[in-house]
């Protein structure tokens, strides 16, 4: 796994929460129709929690009943978050496309680490999260990760609305 000195700057809790709270549309690059793959877990979960999920994968025709697009550039509607399940060397190309389609955020999943490309995206005004899982972070701050004994690292004496 690539080692990055300051991984924390790509995993900022404020940025993560801003993205999760504001996003409506998530394009998942590398989304698989195989229900055992991590990308499918994340897509399934995101849909359950009200996000519009757009599959981007030239090897799929349809995932979750949604048409799968061969590339980001071909998606005929605005995209808030580009969520990436691809090998790190695919990231620079995805960043170029993300800038071209005016995506608001780039989310690189576990192990999808590419510091230069991430920096380029950030310079272009895109919020970037790297080496984090969108499903887990959603479950930590908004969802119910705590029901399985995970450390959400959140702490509050306020009463939340029932789930």
């Amino acid at each position: 796994m690539a080692e990055i000195e300051n991984m924390e700057v790509w995993q900022d809790p404020e940025t993560i929460q801003t993205i999760l709270h504001n996003a409506q549309t998530v394009a998942i690059v590398g989304l698989s129709s195989n229900p055992l793959r991590a990308s499918n877990f994340v897509g399934f979960y995101a849909r359950r929690h009200g996000y519009r999920v757009i599959p981007v994968n030239p090897r799929e025709t349809e995932v979750f009943g949604e048409r799968s697009w061969p590339s980001l550039s071909e998606i005929p509607e605005p995209v808030d978050v580009v969520d990436v399940f691809r090998a790190p060397d695919a990231v620079p190309g995805i960043v170029e496309e993300s800038i071209a389609i005016n995506a608001k955020a780039l989310w690189l999943q576990f192990g999808v680490i590419h510091e230069e490309a991430a920096t380029e995206a950030r310079t272009a005004g895109i919020d970037v999260v790297m080496d984090r899982c969108l499903k887990i972070e959603h479950a930590r701050y908004i969802g119910r990760m705590h029901v399985l004994g995970f450390n959400t690292n959140t702490l509050s004496a306020r009463r939340e609305a029932p789930a």
Partner: peptide, 21 residues
Amino acid sequence: LQEYGNTYSRIMNPTVAAFEE
């Protein structure tokens, strides 16, 4: 395991989860 939720207290329980967290 696609969603975090309670099924059966042999596997998870809200009081036990608070202790775990």
